[in-house]
């Protein structure tokens, strides 16, 4: 994976540092361009086990297995994957296990692909109707404190929280050449 680090923002490193500070070991993901830097960092961190999923709902079950096994995990996806998780979130709500999801938003700010718009627009409701609290981040300086607050709610409080990184924060999608 090659990432253009010259133009990379600082916030992926802040997310990574927060996940390290909370001793997060399993980093499950279905990739998105907005998560590319963070995913690469997870691959480069010996204490983190990156797990490439075939579909997002696998990650809900995987992180439940991690939690009951005594290990902390995080799930990375883009907003188009959130709908895939809806039924599986019953597991999190019913078994009362912690869940941290970090979602890069599509379909909301300068989106060139109209197919992304419906699921992007429905993402907060999809989480909330299944008992997952959402916290939205629009500005780079809010990423670190928001993630820290979410991680504390999840790993200390046992909550299910999705941090939504807005498309304005990430930058409208351009396909990696």
């Amino acid at each position: 994976m090659s990432i253009d680090t010259d133009s990379a923002a600082a916030w992926p490193a802040e997310i990574h540092a927060t996940l390290e500070r909370y001793d997060v070991r399993q980093v499950a993901y279905v990739p998105d361009g907005g998560h590319a830097v963070l995913i690469q960092m997870a691959h480069d961190t010996p204490t983190m086990r990156p797990i490439a999923l075939t579909t997002e709902e696998e990650g809900i079950a995987l992180l439940t297995g991690a939690a009951v096994g005594g290990q902390r995990g995080v799930l990375l996806m883009q907003s188009s994957g959130v709908g895939n998780c809806v039924n599986m979130l019953s597991l999190v709500q019913m078994c009362r296990v912690p869940l941290l999801v970090i979602v890069t938003m599509r379909g909301e700010w300068g989106e060139f692909n109209p197919w992304q718009i419906p699921m992007g627009a429905a993402t907060p409701q999809a989480f909330e109707m299944m008992g997952v609290r959402t916290v939205r981040v629009d500005r780079p300086e809010e990423v670190g404190p928001t993630l820290d607050a979410a991680a504390r709610m999840v790993y200390d409080g046992g909550a299910a929280v999705a941090v939504l990184l807005s498309q304005r924060l990430i930058g409208a999608k351009v396909f990696v050449k």
Binding site: Q26, E57, T64, G65, A66, G69
Partner: peptide, 22 residues
Amino acid sequence: NFYMLGSMGLAVPIALGLAIAQ
């Protein structure tokens, strides 16, 4: 024993997360 009674298809990924953790 953990009995997954909710959604189809989740026993394998739950087991994978647990196998990595332990």
